[in-house]
Design a protein around this nucleic acid. Structure first.
Lengths: 401, 401
DNA sequence: CAAACTTTGTTCGACTATCGCAGAAAGTGA
DNA sequence: TCACTTTCTGCGATAGTCGAACAAAGTTTG
């Protein structure tokens, strides 16, 4: 006789899980929920009622009959913006208003100057996200006349704001610690600042973590262990362990940007002061600089991408080298963590040569057992992953249990 | 207003946790358990009764009064061997019989020849561990006359056997996959073999995982995220995430032995066929071989350690290089995983120069945020960590819930 | 030494979450 | 029209937990 692992209940059936089942479209009726969650119909009914009274769920008429009584369709209140999200990047910020299902209601990008400092940047973005959400008010309070004893919040109320920062965020304090490309932000307490400038709950996290959460919930929700690389101007990673975001001891988990890789000689100097950092070799910023030093002037990452698409030798070689470098670090990560999937996102993920050499390096340097069933993918959720991840973070905090 | 993480209940109060509190000595009475677990006294009383009737706990007279009624002392039945453990190494196996508290009752080492193949080696070890446990029979069934409806197992019954293997073990199948230094073991299904050769439950895992579990339970039980390096003849790691052993998708998590490191030129050939693997540079086997190639003949790892203690230049230089190599890989791991502690065990952990250069490399190459509060330690549990970890594995499986 | 207080542990009623089942509601199909 | 299916709710039963009262067994104090 051998002991098997007790099969862990994939869906424990907490209110959050029910909500997720509806939001994801997996369940449309109470009966669906009962089947999928394993809970009894009566329990589901009761839970659903509670969620409806909290305004987190609503009934939307009757569905199609499957040979019996027609189901009373359930849906997450949609069309209204009740969650704000800010995905701050090196040069641009993406600002979104999302509904309780985590779907984007409206979104816009705007350039930001990180150098203006946290007060200015965050102050403006907070104002903008508030305005954006207010422009698409949430669903009216569905309850009849007068607020009942358990009446949902007033229609259009913003329930929370999620913010992603392109640098190390100490969790859960929300303080920024030694960011390499955010001068003037070191030690800034984002959470405290937001507390003073808005009266809705705010969650702050690293931008790569948001991408990880957004992608995992959208396409990998059934996987337990996943690693997401965000390769844009900088390089970061988000980690899912046991189905949940792994932040580590200080919240800095996934920050592989300053891992050293074997590099050209002399090793390029990184903005952190060290040499040979992954970020100094394989990030978008590094590619721009390296091309400039090789006498190929480019303005920005978009320019680099164009060069690669045009088949420029120098740019392509650099992209390949970047892919190898990322793969080198990722190989250690895969051996160590043994995830089910590694997905790469960010603008550099669009670069085919980079992806190819990353893949090759990974297969070459990983344990067979670790790559046997490993999925290596591109993050395909689109430019709104960040704000979607931010919304998930807010939803998780807002839904009691 | 900012959202804080809901403080996760460190002690949920399942039967397993109660047992652990007693076994660790943190609690001696029902009142202690109630205080520490947060459960109500009545619930604790009921749970304890159940555990006693299962033979997992027993009352051992009255304790000292603290100004009131004297507590009825609780203890895990001790003195009897009810768990068998095998910690298989490259040249030796450590065989132990342990009690329900995870304490070693009796233990012995014996040389093994891995090359004899799994059937012979495991067959002999299984027989030996069974005999060892039988020599120290467990406590008699405490129940009165005749087996009650919930009578504990017969006295002296072996409740399970835990086995650690120095190679990749696919979990939970218990199959060995591509071990680099275990010829003839590839693909061998240890679990199945044990099922056929004994009638008690068997758990199989990687030896580094056992060291990790043993150390974490013994000295770091309050930490959530930890990494344990086992550096002996080979090199492996065990990972604790969220207080639990992280095995990853295939059970190969922590297997960093074949990560490539910057090495001497030409890079040493590894037993896996690749070059420059961590194991080929920094393992005990690698040190022995490298010294031999430098004209310093040594027989085994013990000889290397003696040379280092004697201040031999070559040996010390190699140890430093090994420490740097381990630190190099570990730096990636620390940045990525952000653990609260990194501890190194195995025979090479006794080597001061190795440890020192590993430490230095780690501090040099990690994100400040990641090393700010990081503990870098030696595993101090002793040579029985492995069997102790194996016992913990068995206990976790045996205690229902 | 007796009364008062402490600490430990149990008993019992209350409360909550869940389940199973009966059954109502609403529809399909022969 | 009648049997059957599917969906959902209402209700009693059950399990797990808690709080309060209480019993047990000490210590401390007057």
């Amino acid at each position: 006789m051998t002991i098997d692992d007790a099969p862990r209940d994939l869906l424990r059936g907490g209110p959050r899980d029910l909500l997720r089942l509806v939001a994801s479209g997996a369940a449309v009726s109470r009966a669906d929920l009962a089947r999928l969650s394993g809970l009894s119909p009566s329990t589901v009914s009761q839970r659903v009622e509670a969620l409806i009274s909290q305004g987190l769920l609503e009934e939307t008429g009757a569905g199609k009959s499957r040979g019996g009584r027609r189901p009373r369709q359930l849906a997450v209140p949609t069309g209204g913006a009740v969650i704000g999200a800010i995905d701050l990047g090196a040069h641009h910020a993406r600002i979104g208003a999302l509904d309780l299902a985590g779907q984007v209601v409206s979104v816009r990008s705007r350039p930001v100057r990180i150098d203006d400092g946290p007060e200015v940047v965050l102050g403006e973005l907070l104002a903008e996200v508030t305005a954006l959400a207010a422009a698409e008010p949430g669903p009216d309070s569905a309850a009849g006349s007068g607020p009942g004893p358990e009446s949902p919040p007033a229609g259009g109320a913003l329930r929370g704001i999620g913010i992603g920062i392109p640098g190390p965020v100490q969790h859960p304090t929300g303080r920024i610690v030694s960011p390499s490309r955010m001068p003037g932000w070191n030690g800034f307490d984002v959470s405290a600042f937001c507390r003073d400038h808005t009266d809705v709950p705010v969650v702050v996290d690293n931008d790569a973590n948001l991408m990880a959460l957004g992608t995992h919930r959208a396409v990998h929700s059934e996987l337990d262990h996943a690693v997401y690389i965000k390769a844009g101007t900088g390089i970061g990673a988000g980690v899912i362990s046991g189905g949940q975001l792994h932040r580590g001891s200080q919240g800095s988990a996934g920050d592989i940007s300053h891992c050293r890789v074997v590099a050209t000689d002399p090793a390029p100097l990184c903005s952190c002061g060290n040499t040979g950092c992954l970020e100094a070799v394989a990030s978008g910023a590094a590619l721009v600089r390296a091309l400039g030093e090789q006498g190929v002037p480019v303005d920005d990452l978009a320019g680099v991408m164009r060069l690669i698409d045009d088949g420029d030798r120098h740019a392509t070689a650099l992209a390949r080298q970047a892919g190898r470098s990322i793969g080198e670090i990722l190989a250690v990560v895969v051996n160590f963590f043994n995830p089910q999937v590694v997905a790469i996102g960010g603008r550099l993920a669009e670069c085919e040569p980079l992806l190819a050499s990353m893949r090759a390096t990974l297969y070459e340097r990983c344990l067979p057992l670790a790559t046997e069933t490993l999925l290596i993918e591109r993050v395909t959720v689109g430019p709104d992953v960040g704000v979607m991840g931010a919304a998930q973070l807010v939803i998780d905090q807002v839904v009691n249990m």
